[in-house]
Design a protein around this nucleic acid. Structure first.
Length: 306
DNA sequence: ATCCTGCCTT
DNA sequence: AAGGCGGGAT
């Protein structure tokens, strides 16, 4: 081992150890972190937390588990039931994917959530983050876990960037490999959870609370005087305006279909036609919902949840 | 306006 | 690599 490797190893282990100490004292008691949480419950929490804040996920997570305690239970439900239960968590296509996911677990894995990244990644609706998170948090595998929080913490603390780099599997993997090198497996697992928690509570995107940060002393970004974002780094494009968007129309149509079991297509179209002029978004929104499997067109021109 | 424990398609 | 996809909170 070269002296460079030795120094990196020392830095990595100190980084992981300090975060671990902080986590034990400061972490939120999230329900899916309680001992005895099933892999299915962990998986469900990760799916629901994809682009939805923890506070909004918690009650919905509890409702789903009470109603569908195992993958087989959810697989046996209809898409319509799951879409209605999903309610306003956002990105309703996740509800359909979730049921397909439960079905795949039932059919390919005898109803048990698999414990390897490779098998998890092959399931619908599970990408690099979720596969790693489930392997790590449900099964203790020292897998790569890079979400927006980890990405930002590493970008700042280890690499001195003001903002996280844009999501890229290559960048995520390179950074993860560097910071976990020579770190013992159990500590790698906690590093994932700990850095995620630090990003959520302290090293936040907008106004980081550096005065409460347990690793501020070693922070590269702080050492460099909190430099502004590097323009050479790719940035996520801001979301388009919601009012008037196709997404808004999708939301309106889905709300109506959630409420009434069935609609005639003509009736639904009429609801979005004023003074003889059809809302130009109507057709595209409907087709998009059908493509996502959120709405089905029946034989005689009626629309309903699948 | 920006962010939130991303994923899938093109 | 880029664009699309909810809805709530700050």
């Amino acid at each position: 081992m070269t002296s460079v490797d030795a120094r990196l190893a020392e830095r990595n282990i100190e980084f992981a150890s300090q975060l671990d100490e902080w986590f034990r004292a400061q972490a939120r008691p999230l329900p899916w972190r309680a001992p005895g949480t099933t892999p299915w419950a962990v998986l469900l929490s990760e799916i629901m937390s994809q682009q939805t804040q923890v506070a909004r996920v918690i009650p919905k997570w509890q409702q789903f588990l009470e109603r569908w305690p195992t993958p087989a239970d959810l697989a046996a439900a209809s898409d319509a039931e799951v879409i209605r239960a999903w309610d306003r968590l956002g990105y309703p296509r996740r509800a359909v994917r979730l049921r397909a996911l439960a079905e795949a677990i039932r059919d390919r894995h005898a109803g048990e959530v698999p414990d390897t990244v490779e098998e998890l990644l092959a399931l619908p609706g599970i990408g690099p983050y979720t596969a790693g998170a489930v392997a790590a948090f449900a099964f203790g595998v020292p897998a790569q876990v890079v979400d927006t929080n980890v990405r930002r913490v590493l970008a700042r603390h280890r690499f001195g960037h003001a903002e996280a780099w844009a999501p890229s599997v290559a960048r995520d993997t390179a950074a993860w490999n560097e910071v976990t090198q020579a770190v013992p497996a159990p500590l790698v697992v906690s590093l994932a959870q700990n850095s995620m928690e630090l990003g959520a509570l302290v090293c936040t995107a907008r106004t980081p609370a550096c005065e409460r940060c347990p690793i501020a002393e070693q922070c590269a970004w702080r050492a460099e005087g909190y430099p502004a974002a590097d323009d050479s780094l790719p940035k996520r494009k801001p979301q388009a305006r919601y009012a008037g968007s196709l997404r808004e129309m999708r939301g309106m149509l889905l709300a109506e279909l959630r409420e009434h079991a069935e609609h005639s297509e003509a009736e639904l179209r009429a609801m979005h036609t004023t003074a003889g002029t059809e809302d130009p978004r109507f057709e595209a929104a409907l087709e998009s919902l059908i493509t996502d499997g959120l709405v089905v067109r029946s034989s005689k021109g009626s629309l309903q949840l699948p």
